[in-house]
């Protein structure tokens, strides 16, 4: 008799544990968010021209300015561009130069000699935009939800986020892009770094990390 009671108590405890586990499982989101930090939204995309042998390169030129691209002013994205700061331009340019040097490229100071151009030209550009979004949710209402065929209207909320993209484009000035005339050249390597703006207290460290990542995931750039 005593054993039977103990068995039932065990089942009761197991039932409660199971119900608790189920409640946690059911109440948890369908899409775990892993408590992502703003820097977790950073991405680095690199692409290259597979017909290029980077070992043949050795010198490069790079304008000492990061070109800020403006978003479409008349199309559907009009008005969403964000003015970017130039606060860290010098540091960013210096970091890219350091990476290029590490890969065996020598900087040719400007202006570019068009009769004997460097093997590649690296152009730095940046752009930013704001995305607006809306979402809605229904207020919690337990017993009798929808019982009379009506329900509470949803709350609607709006938000926005701004993203910035920093791009490094490597162009071969001896390789005209096919079908685009003699003054348009082939991009042999491209890196795009995209992330949320104004999201961290140390933006420069974050930029350095992403610039380093772009070169790290492009080992074929090495001329040594």
């Amino acid at each position: 008799m005593h054993q039977r009671h103990a068995g039932r108590r065990g089942i009761r405890i197991l039932s409660m544990a199971l119900m608790a586990a189920l409640a946690v499982g059911v109440l948890s989101s369908c899409y775990p968010d892993y408590n992502l930090s703003p820097t977790d939204y950073d991405v680095v995309l690199t692409k290259y021209d597979p017909s290029t042998n980077f070992v043949t390169y050795g010198t490069y030129a790079m304008p000492d300015t990061i070109v800020h691209l403006s978003a479409d002013t008349t199309g559907p994205n009009a008005g969403t561009d964000v003015r970017l700061s130039r606060k860290y331009d010098k540091e960013i340019i210096a970091r890219v130069k350091q990476e290029m040097s590490d890969l065996g490229y020598s900087l040719v100071p400007g202006p570019i000699d068009t009769t004997n151009p460097p093997t590649v030209v690296v152009v730095l550009t940046a752009t930013a935009s704001t995305t607006l979004y809306s979402y809605y949710y229904y207020p919690y209402y337990g017993y009798g939800w929808g019982y009379w065929g009506w329900y509470y209207p949803p709350y609607v909320s709006y938000g926005s986020y701004s993203t910035g993209t920093f791009m490094m484009t490597m162009i071969d000035p001896r390789k005209p892009a096919s079908g685009l005339g003699a003054k348009v050249f082939t991009t042999v390597w491209f890196a795009g770094l995209n992330g949320l703006l104004n999201a961290t207290s140390a933006p420069l460290d974050r930029l350095y990390e992403r610039i380093d990542q772009a070169f790290e995931q492009s080992p074929y750039l090495n001329t040594k």
Binding site: L36, V44, L45, T46, K47, D49
Partner: peptide, 10 residues
């Protein structure tokens, strides 16, 4: 294709 994408994915 001809490249790499890095970053956190869920």
């Amino acid at each position: 294709p001809n490249g790499t994408l890095s970053g956190t994915q869920v």
